[in-house]
Design a protein around this nucleic acid. Structure first.
Lengths: 208, 208
DNA sequence: ATTGAAATTGCCCTTGGGGACAATTGCAAT
DNA sequence: ATTGCAATTGTCCCCAAGGGCAATTTCAAT
């Protein structure tokens, strides 16, 4: 999958400030997309593009923190760099705890911003890769039938087929059948792969 | 293992302020231990006690951020709550990114502090449990011989004994032998448990 | 009523893994 | 020199898992 260039989205209602940031980033070679409000950013559906967001906090309409929360709720894992002129410590702490990758203050030093953007973009690249594989796996998991899920859970907990059979009140042959089907559906060829999938899916696993 | 009560360590060189914080925390029912400097805190070997640390940043000698770094370097995962009168945004961002659980400013509201301490202590309790089990597992892992580690890695990657044997240039019987020994050493009784251990140890695992 | 997916099970054969019993070799420490 | 651990391998046997072939049942959708 050949991705387009990473895009830096600059969301700030202060036109002149925004333009200057945009200019700075373009000069540094980034693909940049500017938005005068959170709503405009959302409408552009730019949230689906990869890269990062440089976000002002105080804006008319939806403010930066609210936008961050909104994006989090939708599992939209674009890295966010806050850039604000009226931030305080409490705000910055909250933002970082909520997952922002950085919190800068206006006026911002060129290097601080560029380094923040660089980090954000590389962290985004990593996240994308992980998200992709998790989504794919998740989709496969949801294709399992109830029975297959039951068997799956017992298998990854190290139970033997015969024990699984008696726990579910079915024959061992049936367990084998479900087991083969779920391995097929999850696209794994070994028990090791199956358990690795279970871990990635955050399923409960007992070691003994 | 019956643990003693969680202890809140208050590290601040400002005597009167520190005393008032200590009083507040004691009144709230916490076991508290006070220190006038980072060095004093370290010397008290209190770093090994569980609970959390309420830490001033600006102090003579080792300052708060440096102490935090020092504790991090030693894997001493005591949750740290910064409490400072002269903090700025950059400082708070750095502290939180470095793992501090909170960053408060003087004067602090009673409820903010108490809620931060409550969160810190419960997060500590969780960390302790995880650390314990990881350390135990890690110790077991380091008891494996080189050969056992090689076999371990190949097993968790879903390789068959015969393939492992040819990759290592040894007989299948030998692989079985190593395999049995490492299962024993890692205290697991199923392949599922073995792989779960590998995951916890952060070993590389391929799914296909 | 027919079709189809899902669950179920039986029989049988092959392959893989666990483990008992036993032995050899090499290296390092005492 | 002796002891001891680690690595190595062989032969058997048993049990577990994978999978082919085949069939029945049930439930829901068309």
């Amino acid at each position: 999958m050949t991705l387009p260039n990473p895009t830096v989205h600059v969301v700030d209602d202060d036109d002149s400030f925004r333009k200057s940031i945009v200019r700075l980033l373009r000069a540094a070679g980034y693909e940049v997309c500017e938005h005068a409000s959170a709503a405009e950013f959302l409408l552009s559906r730019a949230s689906h593009a990869h890269g990062c967001v440089v976000l002002d906090i105080r804006m008319p309409g939806l403010n930066g923190l609210e936008l961050q929360k909104g994006l989090n709720d939708f599992d939209n894992a674009v890295p966010i760099i806050f850039l604000t002129g009226h931030g305080d410590i409490q705000m910055s702490v909250r933002a970082i705890k909520a997952g922002a990758v950085d919190f800068l203050t206006k006026p911002v030093e060129r290097d601080s911003l560029l380094s923040a953007v660089r980090n954000a973009i590389s962290s985004d690249a990593l996240n994308r890769v992980n998200d992709e594989s998790l989504k794919l796996l998740s989709a496969r998991f949801h294709n399992l039938t109830e029975r297959e899920v039951s068997v799956f859970l017992l298998v990854v907990n190290g139970k033997l087929n015969k024990n699984i059979a008696s726990e579910l009140g079915i024959s061992e042959r049936t367990v084998k059948s479900h087991r083969a089907n779920l391995m097929e559906k999850l696209q794994v060829t070994s028990l090791a792969g199956l358990i690795a999938s279970a871990v990635q899916l955050n399923l409960p696993i007992q070691k003994n």
